[in-house]
């Protein structure tokens, strides 16, 4: 203990404080810079995301139907939150609905699915209008074929592409299952798991819409009048 006592605490105090102060300054500057960039890109990001959503919604809703993707409603089924988009006809009546759902049972886990259902005024006749895969990490060449030809809306042009297998199918548990599981949806070659994941999500959403039609219509009406719920 050769150093005078009154200078020692000062030294160790500074050597402990300086690193902390430096880190705090760097972190604060970083957070500030990022907040600035976030503001600068906020509109562009929102527009890009909206365009992406709109593309999916417009593809799954019947041709000639109007939709405003900024006016959404949401519903929950089996702990999953689904986003709903109303498809309106020329008189403003809601005739169809696009549902954004997902499955965690894909081969590589998460598969995002957009699916449309119509007509909403006759639950017994409710059918799948179309499906559109939003995101997935399925195996290229196998499960990834769930997105083949899906940017196009022409069944004739797309042959037996994945989305065509769901087109105009009734919302019925006997139909909306993979053929190997007793349903009528033909499984993709070597990609039964991917097929099953999407089919499951579609059936789940469809049955939910069928059972809760009244409540969903009410929510969508409210959304159209007053903005997103």
């Amino acid at each position: 203990m050769s150093a005078p006592i009154h200078t020692q605490p000062k030294e160790s105090f500074t050597s402990l404080l300086k690193p902390i102060i430096v880190i705090v300054i760097i972190s604060a500057s970083a957070a500030a810079l990022l907040a600035v960039v976030k503001e600068a890109t906020r509109d562009a990001i929102a527009a890009a995301e909206l365009a992406e959503t709109e593309k999916g919604v417009k593809l799954v809703l019947p041709v000639g139907v109007d939709v405003d993707v900024t006016k959404t409603a949401s519903t929950t089924v089996n702990g999953k939150e689904l986003t709903l988009y109303a498809g309106t006809d020329a008189d403003g009546r809601i005739t169809s609905v696009a549902v954004k759902t997902f499955s965690q049972k894909g081969y590589s886990g998460f598969v995002g699915v957009m699916v449309g259902f119509a007509p909403l005024d006759d639950p017994a006749a409710l059918k799948v209008t179309r499906t559109y895969i939003l995101s997935h990490a399925e195996t290229p060449g196998l499960g990834a074929k769930i997105t083949s030809c899906q940017e196009v809306n022409d069944a004739a042009e797309c042959g037996s592409a994945f989305w065509t297998r769901f087109k105009d199918r009734p919302v019925d548990a006997a139909v909306l299952k993979v053929d190997k599981d007793g349903g009528e949806i033909q499984a993709l070659t070597s990609a039964t798991i991917s097929t099953r994941a999407v089919t499951g999500a579609v059936l789940e959403a469809g049955e939910h819409v069928k059972t809760n039609r009244e409540a969903i219509l009410a929510d969508l009406e409210a959304a159209l009048k007053g903005g997103s719920k």
């Binding site: 690193p19 430096v22 880190i23 760097i26 970083a30 960039v37 562009a44 995301e49």
Partner: peptide
């Protein structure tokens, strides 16, 4: 940058630019 905190400091700096790239790519 004091020696003791150089790794966390580098990490924050790198993470900042990564986040900027992330946001710019998402936007454009």
């Amino acid at each position: 940058i004091p020696d003791r905190v150089r790794l966390p400091a580098f990490i924050v700096i790198i993470a900042t630019f990564v986040t900027i790239v992330d946001m710019v790519l998402k936007a454009y």
